[in-house]
Amino acid sequence: MMGVVRILLARLAQAGFVAVLVGTVGFALMHSLPGDPAFRIAAERYGPDMVDAAAAEAVRAELGLDGPVLPRLLRWLGRVITLNLGHSLVSGAPVLPELLDHLAHTAMLAAMALALALPLGLPLGVLAGLRPGGAVDRVVLLGAVLLRAVPPYALGLALMVVFALHLGWLPPAGFESPAAILLPALTLALGVAALGGRVARDAVMAVEASPFLRFARWKGLSEAAVVRRHGLRNASIPVVAVLGLQFAALLEGAVVVESLFSWPGLGHALVHAIFARDVPMVQGAALALGLGFVLLNALADALAALLDPRRARGTL
């Protein structure tokens, strides 16, 4: 079990690093804005009309916004790590509850996208890997190359034009009806499926050529038993090992796709906050996306350890 503990500790360290990096960027952003940060924060809390020098001083003292840079940064990071994320510079509302709402939307979208991508990409990848160079393989390869070249927003736009504007089957944007999730999820799923299918194809090819699969056949096992007992688990190991890449594609895609479909998730919030220079919101959204990425990777690690005894015992 030592291996699992070590992997999880590494992910924990990674989460800590994400918090420090995003917090430092937030701190630097706050100080890169024109004017006095204390004044801005006071304005967001009490409304622009209620701000005077005394209110700003109170904020400065409370948040420790004066003194040498390093202690100031450490106090700032301390607040980030304890999820004390402040108030939006635009709406004045506390950041955390708003973030949780966005997070729920992004999680829903990502889960839906994975639920569409896995049954689409994996079987096609396996079929392609069983007959490398065959018809399925070529079609899948072509599809994967094209899907990786088309920008996600263009893909989403095309789907929107076809399914919402021309056919009128699905709502083009928003989040009011349950069907609204389908188009953004499908846009994300196509990209993720292309990546996953490709990995599955290579994994199946590698296992198919492995000495242990040949030995399993020579042992006299039926083809079904060979695949079930020796093929599937071994082929799934590399697929799970690179899930992290697919999660990255998922979150990167979410930023663009949420903006296109006006889906109120973290990516949409991040883009808006950058646009409006709403530093606490930028910091909060980037933190939530970064920590989500680390968490997904930790889950992938746990799954990999479950499948691969070498990994669980720290020999890999």
């Binding site: 990674q14 690093f17 994400v18 990096l21 990255a248 979150l251 990167e252 930023v255 970064g290 990425f293």
Partner: peptide, 8 residues
Amino acid sequence: TLALPGLL
């Protein structure tokens, strides 16, 4: 550097 997805 890899702790955050590239676009982020």
